[in-house]
Design a binder for these strands. Sequence first.
DNA 1: CTGAAAGCGCTTACAG
DNA 2: CTGAAAGCGCTTACAG
Lengths: 325, 325
Amino acid sequence: MAGVSKKTVSRVINDSPLVRGETREAVKAIIRETGFAPDPQARGLAFRRAFLVGLIYDNPNPQHTVSHQQGLLDAFQGSGFELVVRPVDRTSPRRLDDIRSFVERQKPFGVVLPSPVSEDEALVALLKELDCRYVRIASVPLDEPDRMVVSHDGEGAAQAARHLADLGHRRIALISGPPNFRSSHERRKGFEAGLAERGLSLDPALVRQGGYTYETGVEAARELLALKDRPTAVFALNDEMAAGAYTSAHAAGLNVPAELSVVGFDDAPIAARLWPPMTSVRLPLRDMGRLAGELLVPTVQRQPVLHDVQPELIVRASTAAFPTS
Amino acid sequence: MAGVSKKTVSRVINDSPLVRGETREAVKAIIRETGFAPDPQARGLAFRRAFLVGLIYDNPNPQHTVSHQQGLLDAFQGSGFELVVRPVDRTSPRRLDDIRSFVERQKPFGVVLPSPVSEDEALVALLKELDCRYVRIASVPLDEPDRMVVSHDGEGAAQAARHLADLGHRRIALISGPPNFRSSHERRKGFEAGLAERGLSLDPALVRQGGYTYETGVEAARELLALKDRPTAVFALNDEMAAGAYTSAHAAGLNVPAELSVVGFDDAPIAARLWPPMTSVRLPLRDMGRLAGELLVPTVQRQPVLHDVQPELIVRASTAAFPTS
DNA sequence: CTGAAAGCGCTTACAG
DNA sequence: CTGAAAGCGCTTACAG
């Protein structure tokens, strides 16, 4: 009803093919001049689906959460989608009811699930039942490609293994993660594969299970360093536990890296701030968030979307040749 | 039109006083049985205001962001409000346009501004112009009480000062923060006040300005430790810079705490993971978020809401008596 | 204190 | 390819 027609505008906004190119351009021009922006509430009501994307997370590492948020927002740039944040307790049985009521009430456009929530098959089943789109972020493919961003943690762990092997280490210890985290298995498998490439294998006596926390890292490393024939290098499956290994090395009076090389995983901010600065495997967390967002949200002109991301070993000063030359 | 009437339900949900107690209870009972939940989209459309609260932040410390989010969600528990996340670049002139279009389009119920965004008066003026409610989180009152959560950083810094003075330190250095952060001034003022209580004063020769980053902490501490008459203790106005002080102490071959006591501010996760574990001032970040949420959102039965929160010095192993007995 | 009407700003079928 | 009608699920005045 403005300079042009009236509810054809709706068609233009929603990219309906039933509009002549001429008309479309005219309307677009007006929209640009006016700075018109459709009301997301009204649009959502009519669509029966809100322009919100939920981030459902349960990660002890705030860096992961914030980086994923950043990446998702990179993807939503100018799309009109908003990011809504939903922490859950993955050990709580109430989590399913929480998510059910969130999805039923808010009718989000979709949700993204970083690990370890992405590994919660009961939650994913619920999402399917509710007909809610989702994208999972995990270390390995767990779903059809359009619903996955894969970080290949195993490859990162393999890089760590090669690095330590190439430095001459032979007695290499591993502090693993909790068995209910998929990433823990993938990182371990990748590490063993990397060692195998160099003709080495993991000595079961040099493996301790941790829980991805600082405290469990302290304890696991304490045990390892108390061994008669102690390891000359240790790979911890995340930086929190690697920081724990530093602490136990200090407590045992061992110098890092002269007497013990340490490698972590995550390249959290702490890695570069410990002394000596720690070698660690970096995950492109922000990119992972961005890819998840691109997968979830339909953008007008989208390049072929990637589903994979590659970890990278950041070598700092916590690893040294053995024997010391 | 159900067991009872029909659009009286609306009145009940919105706590209108124009409903008889009896009717109200009857309707509430039905609501409870049915598990009925009003559609936030439709409600928002009619109210011309969405049931979303925006968190507008620009904080380099992800722990702050995530803890504030947690606290806000604690407050929104069961209220039907959702938290939408909006990082901004406080140095970008575009930030005002970004926030303007966010507020105009989404019509959020309100926004919360943690520091340093809370100190951005141009942004606050914009919010007022747009008639958008807000709550600021800052180290000192910057606004009327109902729009403020105050963390009293100065008091935390004073505790650090007293602690170091009581340990016998006299040559105490300060690594300050960037001048455009209000918290930097407040922490410094509080620190000087704490020293004054013990009859001490800050020696200008022992003050260096940092930028709240690890790197600036490294540099500031390097200079301080190179002084002929070097300090025996250093207070850094955040943990990132305090971690930098550890690094420079290592580089200078100085033992913490035997030759240098270090105190940080924030009690970030890194504080407890450094070696030796670091003494630091803790801010109750989650509580701060919760209070901001309670201030913003009208809850049925609300206790008198607090606007203040108190920091607490967490003493660990980076501080020791001087001279060493 | 409670009901019938009109409207929030969009969209989806339905005709032309 | 484009317009007029009905409806998304709620709320705010307006009468009773």
